[in-house]
Design a protein around this nucleic acid. Structure first.
Length: 486
RNA sequence: CGCGGAAUGGAGUAAAGGUAACUCGCAAGGCUCAUAACCUUGAAACCCAGGUUCGAAUCCAGGUUCCGCAACCA
């Protein structure tokens, strides 16, 4: 039986257009998914949209349309994005779908059955901006949320359901200790460890329907709907059919029996560290479901000089604009090679152009042209045997560590080496005096270019195929692979 | 004393105690197969002052500075 590999991104909340950060997350997930498939794994690659909660409820009300219609409209943008970015996701789950709701109800029941959900009366200050309760210590001198100083806090006095997060302190800590690579990179792992060690508090996981009905109904209680985070996190298993009656995918991709540990990997941005690596893991523990095996934390994409990207500052980058002008692989190239694998990195148009021109136009594109010009002119081709070459036969350390940048840089070193080889061996001169030697050189070049194309498959699938085709047909590109942009 | 992240040539990043590397940019030279592309060489850096060490960008304590913890959101 094939080894399985489960990978998921976080689900973007559908109250805005897709932004460059999510594009990066899903592209990186896509690279890992494709890579694992080449290695021979059976992969389940999940993404989707998060569609409940107060913010959407309010946004729809403001727009004057039905909430479901509102989220339907917005979800389309994200569904389309998958195609624009050339993402190989196996499924796309929306948290308003029936299959998800079933599963969310089931995990609620499981947690309740096991004694980790309880009802409690409480009066709390609530910040709508954060969708979180606030302790007095978290408020500023005006008694408002420090993160949302322009909004009044709501004082809520009501009976809510609570999740017994605090009971998982030692279990989480044990899990972290027994899985030293659970959170990647290390410095994020340290962060979450110290967060858990400093003590956990139970949190409210329901909302009164009378105030806000846009959520999954709490089982057995007409008056409450689930808090959006509780429902949304469940998608990682609802997408596998957990709690739906047909759990074959769940058993195949997630269930980890003692002697056959499944790989379950979650990609997310650094703002999701707590939710993915602590809250969600505690929920799994509460429901008696095995934990994820890795959480990969991306940094943020910033504007010039590390400034936060935002529409109001005018330094926001729309991934679709880049694709329209440069093509999807150019965007993938930049996000994978120039944006740090784990730290914050800047993305500006100037930087993008620079990198596009040097890495793709002068680098990969130009190298392809010069090699194929020689091979087609000299009649040098790859044999059937050569063309059977495979690149991803063994695990690549850089990719196993999710350091895609480093892997990309290694490939570009190979590109540079082929350029050096041409300069040093000068097959274009040799062809006039020693045909055999020249042909040997060009064959070497062609063979290694083919290798580069194969290596690029997970990162730049379109370009990889184009180069492979050109090599098979042995003709130089009619149009430049990457046209120069000034 | 809120929490957290970070500081390396002009810019962006590497380097888990042992010659500070890579890309872009800059300067000089070379090549002509290639998209004014490519190759070679060069100038140019470890925030500050300490400690540990034969040896510190790296470890330790202190200081300084920057960034996130508004909205959108990974």
């Amino acid at each position: 039986m094939k080894k399985t590999f489960y990978l998921t991104t976080t689900l973007p909340y559908v109250n805005a257009d897709p932004h460059i950060g999510f594009a990066m997350e899903i592209i990186r997930g896509d690279v890992i998914a494709r890579y694992k498939r080449y290695l021979g794994y059976e992969v389940f690659f999940n993404t989707g949209t998060d569609e409940h909660g107060q913010k959407l409820f309010e946004a729809a009300k403001e727009a004057g349309i039905d909430t479901q219609k509102y989220v339907d409209q917005n979800a389309i943008k994200f569904i389309d994005l998958m195609q624009s970015l050339n993402i190989s996701n196996d499924t796309f789950i929306r948290t308003t779908e029936e299959r998800h709701i079933k599963s969310a109800l089931a995990i609620w029941n499981k947690c309740k059955e096991n004694g980790f959900i309880y009802k409690k009366n409480y009066a709390v200050k609530y910040c709508v901006g954060c969708e979180l309760e606030k302790q007095d210590s978290e408020l500023n001198e005006n008694g408002r949320c420090e993160l949302h100083p322009n909004r009044d806090l709501e004082i809520r006095e009501e009976e809510n359901y609570f999740f017994a997060f605090s009971k998982f302190e030692s279990e989480l800590t044990n899990y972290y200790e027994n899985n030293p690579n659970f959170v990647v990179p290390d410095f994020r792992f340290n962060e979450i460890k110290s967060f858990v060690k400093n003590g956990l508090q139970d949190f409210s996981i329901s909302r009164l329907k009378s105030k806000m009905n846009w959520g999954i109904p709490v089982p057995g209680d007409e008056e409450h709907v689930m808090y959006v985070w509780f429902d949304a996190l469940t998608n990682y298993i609802s997408t596998l059919g957990w709690g739906s009656g047909d759990e074959s995918n769940f058993e195949k991709f997630w269930l980890q029996k003692d002697n056959e540990r499944r790989e379950v990997v979650q990609y997310c941005g650094k703002d999701n560290l707590r939710q993915q690596s602590a809250i969600w893991q505690a929920m799994l523990m509460a429901a008696g479901i095995p934990n994820s095996t890795n959480i990969i934390i991306d940094g943020f994409i910033t504007g010039e000089g590390g400034v936060k990207m935002s529409k109001s500052l005018g330094n926001a980058i729309d991934p679709l604009d880049i694709i329209n002008e440069y093509g999807v692989d150019a965007l993938r190239y930049f996000l994978l090679k120039e944006v740090s694998s784990f730290e914050d990195s800047p993305f500006t148009i100037e930087r993008f152009k620079e990198s596009y021109n040097s890495g793709l136009v002068n680098g990969l594109g130009n190298l392809t042209s010069r090699i194929l010009t020689m091979s087609s002119n000299y009649g040098v081709t790859l044999s059937e045997e050569d063309l059977k070459m495979r690149y991803y036969t063994d695990p690549v350390p850089e990719l196993e560590g999710f350091d895609i940048c480093k892997h990309m840089n290694n490939i570009w070193v190979n590109i540079s080496n082929l350029n050096k080889f041409i300069q040093e061996q000068e097959p274009f001169k040799k062809i006039k005096i020693n045909k055999e030697e020249a042909e040997k050189d060009v064959h070497y070049l062609l063979y290694h270019l083919f290798g580069i194309a194969l290596a690029l498959e997970p990162m730049m699938p379109e370009t990889s195929l184009k180069i492979q085709e050109l090599i098979k047909e042995n003709k130089k590109p009619e149009e430049p692979l990457f046209p120069r942009k000034d």
